[in-house]
Computed example of a mutant assay.
Amino acid sequence: MSARKSAVPSPEAIARSQRQRLAAEEGVRAIADVERQGLEVRKNMARLRELRQAKEAADAAAAEAMPAPAPKKRARKSPK
């Protein structure tokens, strides 16, 4: 007797095939989500960097506009 594969797949083979197909689809969705989240994070980082640089520039301009503080006089030590 020779063992031949039947042309009709078994229910187990069909279930396995469906699980593999679903896993592949979920993998594609997961990769797309990760890429989308990464893009959002990079956009937010760029926005925050621009805000920080603008604040630093404003702080530097404000510091230049203020007069330099006068040097403090040294207090004399009192004899004991």
Rank of each mutant, 00 (worst) to 15 (best):
E12H: 03
R36A: 15
A61Q: 07
M45L: 12
G27Y: 09
A60S: 07
Q18G: 10
I31S: 09
A62H: 08
I31V: 11
E26T: 08
A3L: 14
R29T: 02
E26K: 07
E64N: 00
P67S: 11
K43F: 05
G38Y: 03
K80E: 13
P69V: 01
A54T: 13
P9N: 04
A62N: 08
L51K: 11
E35R: 10
K80R: 12
A57M: 02
A32C: 09
I31L: 02
K43I: 06
V28N: 11
P79D: 06
R49I: 08
R21G: 00
E25I: 01
P69G: 08
S10M: 03
E50S: 10
K55Y: 12
A23N: 04
L48T: 01
S17G: 08
K77S: 14
R4P: 01
E40Q: 12
A46G: 07
P9E: 01
A15F: 06
P11S: 09
S17W: 00
A54S: 14
K73Q: 14
R4T: 05
K72G: 13
A68Q: 14
V8P: 00
A3M: 11
M66E: 15
R36H: 12
K43H: 13
E64S: 02
S6V: 04
A68V: 12
E50R: 12
G27I: 03
K80T: 06
A60K: 07
R74K: 15
A30M: 06
Q37F: 06
N44M: 05
